[in-house]
Simulated scan of single mutants.
Amino acid sequence: MPPVTASPDLMSPLTLFLHADVVVKIVMLGLLAASVWTWGIIITHSLRLRQINRQTGAYENDFWAAKDIDDFHARRGKEKLPSAAILTAGIDEWRRSTRNRNMDLSGARERLSGAMSAAIADELDRLADRLNILATVGSVAPFVGLFGTVWGIMRSFTGIAAANNTSLAVVAPGIAEALFATAIGLFAAIPAVIAYNRLTHGLDRLEARLGRFADRFHATLSRELEAA
């Protein structure tokens, strides 16, 4: 592809893409697709995490206000919330442990703690689904864009050598097309990194909240075991 002279119109993103080498175009399209995918994950996970935090707070408040745990579990134990999963895990293990008249209280407490900890881990794994994609895009996209830039600059210099013309007006468009790939790579990577850190922090806070709920519920069930 022969070099083109620079003009304001030729510096527009669309024109830079259209004049780019086919390899650079593939890199740009791949990065744009990754950016769209990333924003889809960011929006869906942010909304879901916010909704779960709000619903979890209301659920826990209702639970601690309830007078009968078994009745509350029968009515709301199957809700699609992390707290409900912890509640179900704890009550199921408590019922299994209390079937044995000669139960070991220490062992029963350990099993209760393990069951609720496993429920927390399962819920967090489910909520963290696809967050690894954000980490991957954030770390890989700049290098993919850099590959497109290096390839484009190599092609640009090859065209310059063939034309025997080193004028800046001839060199600029080809280099701009190549650098545009790096810009798209950063455009995809920066939001991915920021969102990954923010969402991970949100999950850490949710994990701490669920851990506190499990600890309080574990204390309640321990008292029930002692009274049984």
Rank of each mutant, 00 (worst) to 15 (best):
P2R: 14
P3K: 04
S7P: 04
P8M: 12
P8F: 14
D9P: 01
S12L: 15
L14I: 15
T15C: 06
L16P: 00
L18G: 03
L18V: 13
H19L: 15
V24R: 00
K25Y: 07
L29E: 05
G30W: 10
L31S: 03
W39E: 04
I41W: 09
I41K: 05
I41S: 06
T44Y: 10
S46A: 09
R48N: 14
L49G: 03
L49H: 06
Q51I: 04
G57S: 07
Y59T: 00
F63D: 00
F63N: 00
F63A: 03
W64H: 11
A65W: 05
A66M: 11
K67I: 08
K67C: 06
D68Q: 11
D70H: 13
D70M: 13
D70F: 14
F72V: 07
F72I: 10
F72S: 06
A74S: 14
R75F: 08
R76L: 13
E79T: 09
P82D: 02
A85C: 08
A85G: 10
I86T: 04
T88Y: 12
A89R: 02
A89C: 08
G90P: 05
G90R: 03
D92W: 15
E93W: 11
W94A: 09
S97C: 14
S97D: 10
R101I: 11
N102P: 07
N102Q: 14
L105E: 15
G107C: 07
G107I: 12
A108F: 15
E110M: 13
L112W: 08
G114N: 15
M116Q: 09
A118Y: 08
A118P: 02
I120S: 00
E123D: 13
L124N: 04
L127M: 10
L127G: 01
D129L: 12
D129N: 12
R130Y: 12
L131K: 05
L131Y: 12
L131C: 09
L131F: 09
N132W: 10
L134A: 09
A135S: 11
T136L: 11
G138W: 03
S139E: 07
P142Q: 12
V144D: 00
V144T: 12
G145E: 01
L146E: 02
F147N: 01
T149K: 00
W151T: 02
G152C: 04
R155M: 08
R155H: 13
R155N: 15
S156E: 00
S156R: 01
I160P: 01
A161S: 15
A162V: 13
A163H: 09
A163W: 09
T166E: 02
S167Q: 12
L168K: 05
P173E: 04
G174Q: 02
G174K: 01
E177L: 03
E177R: 03
A178N: 02
L179N: 03
A181S: 13
I184P: 00
G185F: 05
L186W: 07
A188I: 06
A188G: 04
A189P: 05
I190M: 10
I190A: 07
P191R: 12
V193I: 15
V193W: 08
A195E: 03
R198F: 14
L199D: 01
T200Y: 10
G202K: 08
D204P: 01
R205W: 08
L206P: 00
G211D: 09
F213Q: 01
R216N: 11
R216G: 08
H218G: 14
T220Q: 14
S222Q: 10
L225G: 04
A227G: 06
A228P: 05
